[in-house]
Amino acid sequence: MIRADIHMHTCISHGQATVEEMYQAACQTGLDYVGFSEHSPLPEGFFCRLYREDFAASFPGYCQEVLALKQRETTGPQVLLGTELDWIPSNMPYMRQLLAAHPFDYVIGSLHYLDEMSVGYNANWNCSEEEAFARFTYYYRVMAHMARSGLVHIASHPDFIKLHCFDLFNYWLWQPGSREVIGETLAVLRQCGVVMEVSSAGLRQKFCEPYPGPMIMDMAAREGVLISLASDAHRPQEVAYAFDELARYARSYGYRESAIFIGGQRTMLPF
């Protein structure tokens, strides 16, 4: 049994349920901990068409709602306040100010952008193979920089870039030098104490593979990178999604514990 799900979203950004509705769904799963990790509002010049127009203005109120839920007496899972920080290194002062404004238990670092280019839902892969391979390499270089920053506790869905180029990404994994680049990044995660997220969200995609896929999962286990387990839920029925399958997947690589963070301090939970 996986005891914690600390990556989920609400209708404040582009989820489909309120904080209370997501919490009530968590209460039905047997979880001991549930973490709300809403996306961070984007700085000027960046835009996600999936987010509500009033997302940035609503974010402080959302944080207060989660903090109130943390204080409420309940027999359900313990509530944690996190955030999924869009890692945009050209806006370091913005990111630091945002993280200082709220008492987050943990910060999940996510690479949805490479500079100003989206690698997610607005991604454009109409490029040469050479350019695509350069993007993949740069993606992991930026991830290493993120880990060294000291601002994040968890590196989320560490091969998210495969979302709309799954076959091309997996082809790149077998090219000379690609695994060395990923291995260097995984070593930085371990050295900096940044946990790698293993997410069932990929099982909801057409490629039906967790984040990260088997090759990176094996490399991380061999490197000794710690993991957290998550659903990246955007609706109540996705809370703790496919956690039995996710537990089997992680255990097949030798993992027996997953990490959570309370007040910035790491706690390991057996599963």
Results as ranks from 00 to 15, higher is better:
S128P: 11
P176W: 10
D86H: 06
Y140L: 05
A187T: 07
M22E: 13
D54T: 11
K206Q: 10
G82W: 06
M8E: 15
P43R: 02
Y255C: 00
H153T: 09
L203E: 12
R148G: 09
D115T: 11
Y139F: 08
G109T: 10
G35C: 07
H39A: 05
V225Q: 13
N126C: 05
F169T: 03
Q16A: 07
D167G: 00
I260Y: 15
A220K: 11
E116H: 15
P77H: 12
F55A: 00
A132W: 14
I108Q: 05
A201G: 10
M95N: 03
A242P: 09
Y255E: 07
F46A: 03
L81W: 10
S40R: 02
M117A: 00
D105M: 01
F169E: 10
A187R: 05
C48T: 09
V225I: 08
P158S: 09
G15I: 13
H112S: 07
L186P: 15
Y51P: 03
E65H: 08
D86G: 08
P270Y: 00
M95C: 02
H9F: 04
I88L: 02
P89G: 01
V107I: 11
S149A: 06
A230K: 00
E65A: 02
T267D: 14
S199M: 03
L269S: 09
A155L: 07
